[in-house]
Computed example of a mutant assay.
Amino acid sequence: MAAAAEPGGRPVKRSRSLEFLPPDMSELRIVLLGSSWSQRNSVEKSILDNNNFNTEPLSCTRNTSRFRNKHVTVINTPELLSPTQDKLNEFLKYCARVSYPGPHVFLLVLHPEDFNEDHKEKFCRILETYNDQSFDRCLILVTPREKSSGLRETHMENKTLKEMIRKCRYRHLKMSDIKRAELLTRLGQVAKENNGERLTYEVIEETTSPVSSSSAATIRKFNDTDGKEVKLGDLIQIFCRVYQDWAVYVGDGDVVTFFPNGSVTGVVVKHKLEHVVEKWRVNNRLDHKYPPRPANDIVKEACSLVDTEMQWDLYTYNEEHFATDMRYGKPESQQPSLLHDGVTLIKIQRFRSADVVPAPLW
């Protein structure tokens, strides 16, 4: 396997730590790029150890699983054919929102047999437009169409692919060579080589206007059950029949929450706070542990994810995980630890297994 190298051709110094990710990283976010949906789908299933993703997405999707006690999130992208600059910007803005607060690694899934100059130019445009450091965060996964003992010679004979590998600091693997643990270890290695820092889309903050203080001042005031006024970015705890729902207050009487729409998926939705009929209260319960993000950032991000479908799981990413992720950038939930009653858990799982988005519990 070729050694990774810095832009000037010097080998990148690899960390010898046995940890999958740095201790302060709770999640690894991976953006999948590639020309073949079937190969991207196969790689996503392998990374997440989940075979439930079978439909080609029309937009970016976000799904999460766990590996060595860390969250692993895959943002799979639709195919982008000969994009105009406007289409490219639109694609990247949506990708940035779905991968918020930013990806750690781009995983390029490439066929050695047909990778050509047009493919290289397209992927280079995507990466260069997203961030000028994108190539430092890339890993190329070379996938054969058919198994062949001569694949290594075949893909190394493709000069265009070799050039793409060089631009990605010589980080590449062969699909036929690896298993899930090795692939995730290599992806984690890329994150560690970059100190666990995430990438941001450099245009998104310039093109997205935050909520102004003047508009915030005109928002109608709402008070919770205890009489406390709710403010932008506050977390709302809703006391339901057998489960505590959580939402993020985004202003003008609206809350954003994450509802399951199947046994393993959920969708981000927006509702009116005035429709809550159960008891609810403001509960920013982790403010003592983590500094909250700026209110405008919380609101902007939560609203940008409305109608986005993601993987839902009671233990790894439920409504409370979503809410705390928005406010603190740290997805945490007390729900699993509170559910010691097996009967209650069965009731929740039955309710959460509906084939459509359930009616709100408020």
Rank of each mutant, 00 (worst) to 15 (best):
V255Y: 01
V256I: 04
T257I: 07
T257Q: 09
F259H: 13
P260C: 06
N261M: 08
G262I: 08
G262A: 15
T265W: 05
T265K: 05
G266C: 04
G266Y: 11
V267A: 06
V268W: 09
V268E: 00
V269M: 12
V269H: 07
V269G: 08
K270S: 03
K270N: 06
K272C: 01
L273A: 03
L273T: 00
E274I: 03
V276P: 10
V277R: 00
W280A: 05
R281S: 05
N284P: 09
R285S: 11
L286P: 13
D287C: 08
H288R: 13
K289F: 10
K289T: 10
Y290E: 12
P291R: 14
P291G: 09
P291N: 15
P291Y: 13
P294D: 14
P294L: 09
N296T: 14
N296P: 14
D297C: 04
I298Q: 02
I298M: 09
I298A: 00
C303F: 07
L305W: 05
L305A: 04
V306N: 03
D307H: 14
T308E: 14
T308C: 13
T308Y: 01
E309H: 14
M310L: 15
M310F: 15
Q311P: 04
Q311C: 10
Q311T: 15
Y315H: 04
Y315T: 00
Y315R: 00
N318D: 15
E320H: 01
H321W: 03
A323C: 04
T324V: 01
D325F: 15
